[in-house]
């Protein structure tokens, strides 16, 4: 087996693992983070369901989640990871801390995106008889979609970085490959190849995010 064949044979499964980790945690963090962001907007100052106490609790929780360093978060949620996935190592297990790390970030990005929706447009819909659910469905999400997509690309790029860190502490994927071969065995070629794939991945995500967001911005 030539060195190129060997590198490809090592890189391909690691790339797929990283892709799966990022994709799943991106999906799950948005599934939970978008509703949390919407709750922040609804209960926040001037929101249609303004509630100071609820907002303060949610706001503090989001800030707390964003301030915990990823390595510490990964280690501290091991019992939860084991409970949910049955293991604490490997790419499937890594999805749990990755989702938890991205969730508050997604919530804050969603809040920021929805807050840019024109207040007058929201009032116009209220005057048409829109309920809170109607506002979410017809105004908040469709009107902030371009910003939400931009935010999604930023989150995905962050997750690629986090996934490499998760890899280094037993999560699998390209980070794991770079550490095991590049760092521990001094195989610079494999390490550089892993980094190159990560760089390419980030470029593709950002390019796609920008394109889709621009297309949605009317």
């Amino acid at each position: 087996m030539s060195s190129i064949e060997r590198t490809v044979a090592l890189l391909w499964p690691a790339t797929l693992e990283t892709f799966a980790m990022v994709a799943w945690s991106l999906f799950l963090s948005h599934l939970l983070g978008i509703p949390l962001g919407l709750l922040l907007v609804l209960t926040g100052p001037g929101g249609v369901a303004e509630n100071k106490l609820a907002y303060r609790i949610l706001d503090a929780a989001v800030n707390f989640g964003r301030s915990v360093p990823f390595v510490i978060l990964t280690v501290s949620v091991v019992p939860l990871t084991r409970f949910l996935t049955g293991t604490s190592i490997g790419p499937v297990a890594a999805v749990v801390p990755l989702t938890l790390a991205a969730l508050p970030f997604v919530a804050r990005l969603t809040e920021t995106a929805v807050l840019t929706v024109d207040r007058g447009t929201i009032e116009a819909c209220i005057s048409m008889g829109a309920s809170r659910f109607d506002l979410i469905r017809f105004v908040f999400i469709p009107e902030s979609l371009p910003s939400l997509v931009s935010g999604m690309a930023i989150t995905a790029v962050n997750l690629v970085g986090y996934s490499a860190m998760a890899g280094a502490i037993g999560g699998g994927g390209l980070g794991d490959l770079a550490v095991r071969f590049g760092y521990q065995r001094w195989e610079t070629g494999i390490m550089l190849a892993s980094v190159a794939v990560l760089v390419a991945g980030v470029q593709i995500i950002q390019l796609l995010g920008d394109r889709i967001s621009r297309r949605l911005r009317r």
Binding site: E123, C125, E143
Partner: peptide, 22 residues
């Protein structure tokens, strides 16, 4: 909200307030 729907009240605002996504 219920009264607006029942009595049929419609408003046209100064800034048009159309949804850009539609």
């Amino acid at each position: 909200r219920h009264v607006r729907l029942r009595l049929g009240l419609s408003v046209v605002f100064q800034g048009y307030n159309l949804l850009n996504s539609r």
